[in-house]
Amino acid sequence: MNPALLLIADSRLPAGGHAHSGGVERAVASGAVHDVPSLSRFLRGRLHTAGALAAALTSAAALQASCTPISPAPDTTEAGTRDVTEAPPATEGGAEGGDDRESPWVRLDDEVDARTAAPAQREASRTQGRLLLRVARRVWPSSVLDELARTVPDPHHPIALGVAAHAAGATPEEAALAAAYHAISGPATAAVRLLGLDPVAVHALLAAFTPDLTAVAAQAHFAATSAYPAPHLAPRWEALPAYSAPALDLLAEQHAQAEIRLFVS
């Protein structure tokens, strides 16, 4: 395993992940999650739906990054330190928009959009993606991160995670593992804070999920490589998994409309 994966998966990476509960806060408010066993059921469901989806999309993004020919960006020397907000605006049919529309990153981002029905989840994903992209460009400067920032300034989180993992030297399967872990580690620690659960008991829960994490990452990587088996073939991202979790969609929208919130999502 590439040690950089530890940095990417670490909750202390200053990319804003701690501000999101992945639906746990609303599930706690409704009483659906109230102790360690109910948290365990929540996390298992989240891992095998939203987590498996994020893992497949992250692996796809890492694969796309590893297959993307390096094209020199206009201002590569500056790009590493430039703030993302200064990147040119996205693809709204501007003078150079016609080209970006065909960008593999726009295509992949469209596929993430289509798999994220809830607007609140799309917003949470793009917020986390934008922050991670900004951090990753400074920590692991690379032309592929610059190209992503140029064509999709606020990418969905799995895309930012996959490309960041690639820039850090991790494989697509390792990137999928980081995505799967991210899908449950944030909600688990959020539940500790919201319910005052025993943090050791919750970490034992996470430890018990490690075989599931391995399996989810392996399946995600298999799905991504099946959709994009070789660099000279056009990726068939439409064939990627599209796992949904109806309760998570409801929780996300209920949370977005709640008046009192500790977490953003």
Binding site: G23, A27, A32, V33, S38, R41, F42, L43, R44, G45, R46, H48, T49, A50, A245, P246, A247, L248, L251
Partner: peptide
């Protein structure tokens, strides 16, 4: 293991 998860279908 997944149907009754509060993240998936809950009590539905």
């Amino acid at each position: 293991a997944l149907d009754t998860s509060p993240a998936v279908f809950g009590a539905a």
